[in-house]
Simulated scan of single mutants.
Amino acid sequence: MTVNRGRKIVLWRHGQTAWNLERRFQGSTDIELTEEGLGQARRAARLLAAMNPDAIIASDLKRTAATAAELAALTGLDVTHDEALRETYAGTWQGLTHEEIIARFGDQYAAWKRGEPVRRGGGELETEVADRAAPVVERAADKLPDGGTLVVASHGGTIRTTIGRLLGLEPGTWEALGGLTNCCWSVLGEGARGWRLMEHNAGTLPEPVLGDDD
């Protein structure tokens, strides 16, 4: 029997990077925030601080660490960094623009968009990303008090696969979860049957999704 403890998980994408603007596939490449990205993180942190989070975990890459640091500064919470929350490793795709990927790996790109299991650029499968990231989120959520809130600063693709895994969705349907705008977030709430999606791509007026997940 599932026990509803009233917990929430906020999955928060990092702020803008130069590669986002250039539409370059970042994957696990360690790219820093732009000044605009840092400003996005500061604005989002003020909103997230109002949720009174109990814990913050984050990918250890620079763009997510800097994003999470803004919320930590407002809340006084420590950030636990974990490389398991990194973005999908995408091998030879990393650093290429979407146009370059389509030109060089068109069949592979099309198969990925159809929801087929694809090692983009020889990298990770989406299910492998979920295998490493979702348990980290679940373990952190298990430590929350009843009614507590966990903030997870991560990456668009990793967040999508983690949501899909926590909701029990079939991997081929994960693409149905739209991408996150920089520094926006999704909220999972605990229900009688497990986790459910309460909010998706929340936090700002609609803006284009710039990144690996668009």
Rank of each mutant, 00 (worst) to 15 (best):
L169H: 05
E22T: 01
R42Y: 03
Q94P: 09
G157K: 03
T80S: 14
G121K: 08
P53W: 00
A50M: 08
R193L: 11
N4H: 10
E116D: 15
A133R: 05
W93A: 08
A45V: 00
D131Y: 04
G95C: 11
L11M: 12
W185A: 11
A45C: 04
T158D: 11
A130H: 11
A73L: 09
Y109R: 04
Q108K: 01
A202P: 01
D60H: 08
A90K: 11
V3K: 15
L144K: 00
A176L: 14
R120M: 14
M198E: 15
L47I: 02
E190F: 12
T161H: 09
T173K: 15
P53I: 06
L21G: 01
D213W: 12
G76Y: 07
V209I: 14
G148E: 06
T162E: 05
Y109D: 09
W195T: 06
L150P: 05
A110K: 05
I163H: 04
G189Y: 07
G121D: 11
P135V: 02
R46K: 15
A55S: 13
L205F: 08
Y89D: 13
V187L: 07
E100T: 07
P206W: 01
K113L: 13
G203S: 05
G106F: 02
T17W: 04
G95T: 14
L167D: 07
D54H: 13
E22G: 11
G106L: 04
L210T: 00
G15D: 11
V118M: 03
L197Y: 08
G15F: 15
K8T: 11
T88N: 10
G189I: 01
F25A: 08
G37V: 06
A202N: 03
L85P: 09
L61G: 06
A192N: 01
H155S: 12
A66F: 03
G6Y: 00
Q26V: 05
E199L: 15
G178M: 10
T158F: 05
L150D: 08
Q108L: 02
E22W: 05
A84H: 14
L188P: 13
A45T: 03
V10H: 03
I57S: 02
Y109W: 15
L85E: 06
R42S: 05
E70C: 12
T80Q: 10
T2R: 14
G164L: 06
G189S: 14
G211M: 12
E175V: 15
G211W: 04
A133K: 02
K113G: 03
A68N: 03
P206Y: 01
S186C: 08
R23N: 12
A141Q: 05
H155K: 01
R120E: 09
V10K: 05
A72G: 15
V10L: 13
E100C: 09
H81V: 13
W195M: 14
L96H: 07
E100A: 11
G6N: 12
M1A: 15
G189W: 07
W174T: 09
G194E: 07
V3W: 07
R139K: 14
R13N: 09
L33P: 11
R160D: 02
D146Y: 00
I159K: 00
D78Y: 00
E83I: 13
N182D: 14
G147F: 08
W174P: 12
Q16A: 01
N52I: 01
L38M: 12
P53R: 03
R43A: 15
I101M: 02
P53Y: 04
N52K: 14
G179H: 12
R139G: 02
